[in-house]
């Protein structure tokens, strides 16, 4: 397997620090009233965090195309359930 490139200890700590920082940001933003945007911002930050975890801690960064495919395809289905449900709930 080709994990070598992502394995350094420094990267792991940097990613860890980034995750902590983003957590703090999430908490702080929740005190600002942005209306519907609050949800959007929270989900965006959460997505960035999840991507960091997948890329570095789960070593997706150095993986081959097949593994990338399996990692990305479910996002399509997530979009699908959101789209289908919102077509109902937003237009009812």
């Amino acid at each position: 397997m080709s994990h070598g490139s992502t394995g350094s200890r420094r990267t792991y700590f940097a990613v860890f620090a980034a995750l902590l920082l983003l957590t703090v940001v999430t908490v702080l933003v929740s005190y600002v009233d942005l209306g519907l945007l609050n949800v959007v911002v929270a989900l965006l930050i959460a997505s960035v965090k999840a991507s960091l975890v997948a890329l570095f801690f789960m070593h997706l960064k150095g993986e081959n195309r097949l593994v990338w495919g399996f990692a990305l395809v479910p996002i399509f289905f997530l979009a699908l359930i959101l789209l289908g449900t919102l077509t109902d709930t937003m237009l009812r």
Partner: peptide
């Protein structure tokens, strides 16, 4: 199979557009 789940819900009060698409 992932695109059609709403056909179980035509009488549940879904939006007309969702009904038509599903």
């Amino acid at each position: 199979g992932f695109l059609v789940w709403g056909h179980h819900m035509f009488t549940s009060g879904m939006s007309p557009l969702a009904n038509a698409i599903f």
